[in-house]
Design a protein around this nucleic acid. Structure first.
Length: 94
DNA sequence: CGTATGACGTGCA
DNA sequence: GTGCACGCCATAC
């Protein structure tokens, strides 16, 4: 087992975000701020959107991440796509 | 290292 | 309820 680095985790904030978003159950939504909180930085909600947007990773239900306001926010694949997916899961969009 | 960017959140008019 | 400005943090260059 490789020794654990005593320094800060080499794992980028991105990885934590993905891990959390991946755990979002179908039909449920999670706010960016909430994800940041679970990631360990309740004030990094800004970075959350930044990371997801750049990653374009289809491995995570990033469409389930919305604003606390209940808005959609955005989607690098197209905001329309996000609305469609959420609506399909039974989530209403304002 | 400093600047710029971005799928946010909050406060106030 | 809506719109605007500011602040916040991580990442890219």
């Amino acid at each position: 087992m490789p020794k654990k680095s005593l320094k800060k985790p080499i794992i980028p904030f991105q990885k934590k975000v993905f891990d959390i978003v991946k755990k979002i159950p179908r039909g449920k939504t999670l706010a960016y701020k909430k994800v940041a909180e679970l990631a360990g930085s309740p004030n990094a909600y800004r970075a959350i959107g930044n990371i997801l947007n750049k990653n374009k990773n289809n491995k995570i239900p990033c469409h389930r991440v919305i604003m606390l306001n209940g808005r959609i926010g955005g989607y690098n694949k197209g905001i329309k796509r996000k609305i469609f997916l959420l609506k399909k899961e039974g989530i209403k969009i304002k």
